[in-house]
Simulated scan of single mutants.
Amino acid sequence: MGSNGANGSSGAMSACARLRQMLAQPNEIITAVGVYDGISARLALNEGFKCLYMTGAGTAASVLGMPDLGITNMTDMVTNAGMIAGLDPTVPLIADADTGFGESLAVSRTVRAYMQAGVAAMHLEDQPLNKRCGHLGSKELVTEDVYFRRLRAAAATRDQLRAQTGQDIIIIARTDSLQALGYEAAVDRLRKAGEAGAEVAFLEGIVTKEQLENVCRDIKDTGMPVLLNMVSGGVTPEVSIAEASKLGFRIIIFPSAVLSVVMEAAQAQLKHLKETGLQKIPESRKHQGPKLLFEAMGMDERVEFDRKVGGQSYTQGI
């Protein structure tokens, strides 16, 4: 995979260049935890994750309060991605871009928007515009011609902007064809996706250990790294990061790692409040008030910045 280390004229390494550098380490696996809003992204950064993943399902749920059924549009997705990528521009963000939100010209516009938002990598899939979560049933597909046209449009836009501005983005080809067409046909789509300009392969909805064991080997000769999607409670057999690395995967994403536990905890809190009239507050958080949240969201750094530029707002403390 090619590399472009500069970001504008500053000479600083861009998030995309950093992700390319990580992918260039042959025995390392990139772990990208799924985030969907400012809180989840901040907490992941605080824990020291070196790569983030913006989940489309989480974006649909948190931004729109809707299911992952192709309801989000480009503006919804790129606005959320730009906010997350901007929290720490040194940490690469891989972002769901669904179908690219249209035909060639729309895909090109989407790629430009994601690049300008600071996204390091984006994945495009072969479902129609009325797509659905990859771990639901009865998924439909577009033809190979339509799919590869999306990828060629994405790759051409990436190459054009890279030449003009030095910006860069990694194009990930996701196929949802395993369910309808079978393993061999799905792998064949990914191989052809590489010829269309994709740089990373993503077989969605893996359902057997055998498929997990074979896919990296079956795509190895293309030179494309393979991404594994580990959805909480999804159709894919659960493997650890170490196991995924041993199987040959180069990227592993955990889209619902945060969302699933937040949903459960929030439902329990709301149920308790409705039934008792009281909030359930852990002992460790009693008497902390909102300060604990604000500190996790970077309050100390913001206050210090204000002090350094001569601000007086926080001289008496918070």
Rank of each mutant, 00 (worst) to 15 (best):
K271I: 04
P282W: 06
E301M: 08
D221C: 08
R302C: 04
S256Q: 13
D168V: 07
V231F: 01
G317S: 02
E275F: 00
T157Y: 10
G102W: 10
A173D: 07
G194M: 07
A296P: 00
M115Q: 03
A97V: 06
N214R: 15
A17N: 06
T110C: 15
R158M: 09
L151Q: 09
T75S: 15
E264V: 11
Q267G: 02
F49D: 07
H287R: 13
V235G: 01
V119E: 04
E238A: 10
D96Y: 01
S177Y: 02
N46Y: 11
L129I: 07
V239G: 02
L293Q: 02
M122V: 13
G197A: 04
V226E: 00
R42D: 04
V258Q: 14
L247S: 08
M54W: 02
P92F: 10
F49T: 09
Q21V: 01
L87Q: 15
D176S: 14
M299Q: 08
D306Y: 09
A196Y: 05
N130W: 01
A81Q: 07
T79M: 12
G100Q: 14
T165S: 13
L292M: 15
V146M: 13
L23M: 08
D300G: 09
L19G: 00
G102D: 11
A44D: 05
G56D: 02
